[in-house]
Design a protein around this nucleic acid. Sequence first.
DNA 1: ATGAATCGTTTAGCAAGCTACACGATAGCG
DNA 2: CGCTATCGTGTAGCTTGCTAAACGATTCAT
Lengths: 170, 170
Amino acid sequence: MTSATSPASSPALLDEHRNSPGLMLALLGHEAMRRLRDAHTAKGLTPRQFHVLGLLHDRGPLAQTDLASETDTAASVLVTQLNPLEADGLVTRTRDPRDRRRHLVVLTEVGQQRLRAAAAAQQEVEDDLFRSLSDSQRSQLTQLLVLVRDDLTDGNEHCGTPTSLDRKTS
Amino acid sequence: MTSATSPASSPALLDEHRNSPGLMLALLGHEAMRRLRDAHTAKGLTPRQFHVLGLLHDRGPLAQTDLASETDTAASVLVTQLNPLEADGLVTRTRDPRDRRRHLVVLTEVGQQRLRAAAAAQQEVEDDLFRSLSDSQRSQLTQLLVLVRDDLTDGNEHCGTPTSLDRKTS
DNA sequence: ATGAATCGTTTAGCAAGCTACACGATAGCG
DNA sequence: CGCTATCGTGTAGCTTGCTAAACGATTCAT
């Protein structure tokens, strides 16, 4: 009988991990994503669609290939995101006169409105998420997250991290 | 050279949101979860299984109902997590003499070893995630995340947030 | 003009995670 | 004794998000 009812040997592993930044980041991030997603779907958009609209807003008309690479989605997936957008008139697809294989995706007026509405909803969610923080705490958190993200994306995009990045399968 | 076809009206929405704490939290959390998950599966555990083992470690033998409620999983799901654990000898199921309907789930020696190994791997992942932060920055981040989490779980478990919690179906 | 490559699209299929329901075994109440 | 509730289990099905492969249309090099 190893340890019937006595967690004798080692100190509480779980409680120690409960406040570990990694786990909290993962868990809170999950909750945050859930809420953001809900905010967007309430406006009739998937997160990906929001991302696409944002890209079009900031960069002007783009071909689908560009959108696909920017948003890191397979072309075949992107199509399924664009179809409802076009059907709802948030976006138009017109053939690129220079290269008639391409579809230029253009953000419409209605699309801009929806984008703004969704962005506002997202802002609300965010304010609610961090309502427990003071302004300075919130910007502190932002700064720290920026540091972590920039480090990670650097490691990702430059070469690959020494430790254990490019793990695809298995 | 702003843009090809004039996103004239409003300022860059996307770039503004790129550094928003909510989005970063969601994205980084996603990445963190992916890495933690990978660390655990490399040790042959699902995150849930890790959670279960941790609970057993800290609280001693538990009945499945207790495990289910603690980990917030349906009983029928818990079973599918426990089966491989028992098959691998990380855990034993014995009938509770007091209530022979119950199965007392006990963490074995091997289970403890696996748990510790997985915990170590998780620690590694975490150190890698936050390698860009100094010690004080890291504990700052931890503190801020604790604040946010405690506020959120309070709102969740006490009553329900005023804004928009209990959204089940839509 | 012909063949190879590219862009967009469609469809089929997979995988993870979950819910819902039915079932056998046990407990406990009257 | 029966009736009802609980615990653990298995199974069937759904959803979401993805990958892979095939295809028509177009471009481009030769």
